[in-house]
Design a protein around this nucleic acid. Structure first.
Length: 139
DNA sequence: GCCAACGTTGGC
DNA sequence: GCCAACGTTGGC
């Protein structure tokens, strides 16, 4: 089965990549948006996920992996909301900024640009590979 | 700190 | 079921 690719956003002041790396795995809580929730539900174990810092930095900083598929959000009794478990996999050699993504014609259609408020979104494989490639070489 | 985009709520 | 008001997110 082909793996899916995703991008999750977090404000580094709330939960940074560094903290994530320290924790190794985390559950992705706090999603209160149906579209983002639907994306969480569609995640499969082993899917690759880009980690994006919003507000502060506005850049993709690392890659993580789905280690547990969606289950009831432990931080609320409301059964509409779910979380997934993510494991930090590897940091990009250098962060890929939002400005760079905007400059890349191949990335112009990313949900990140079209729907700035969505916090969990699908990414196509070419888009995913492109960002990882950008993040693995010097500017 | 401001403002645009967009999701949600509630009156009708 | 429509739409105005309101709240939140996130880029700048």
């Amino acid at each position: 089965m082909p793996k899916h690719h995703w991008l999750v956003k977090q404000e580094p002041t709330k939960y940074s990549w560094d903290q994530f790396v320290k924790d190794k795995t985390t559950y992705w809580d706090g999603v209160r948006n149906y579209q983002a929730r639907n994306n969480l539900n569609a995640m499969k174990k082993g899917d690759q996920v880009l980690y994006y810092h919003s507000v502060v930095g506005t850049e993709v900083v690392g890659v993580c992996e789905v280690v547990r598929e969606s289950y009831q959000d432990p931080t609320t009794d409301d059964d509409r909301w779910v979380v997934v478990d993510l494991a930090a996999k590897k940091a990009l050699k250098r962060a890929v900024t939002l400005a760079e993504i905007k400059e890349e014609p191949a990335l112009a259609d990313m949900a990140l640009l079209r729907q700035s408020r969505l916090s969990v979104m699908p990414v196509t494989k070419p888009e995913f590979d492109r960002i990882v490639k950008l993040g693995s070489k010097a500017r």
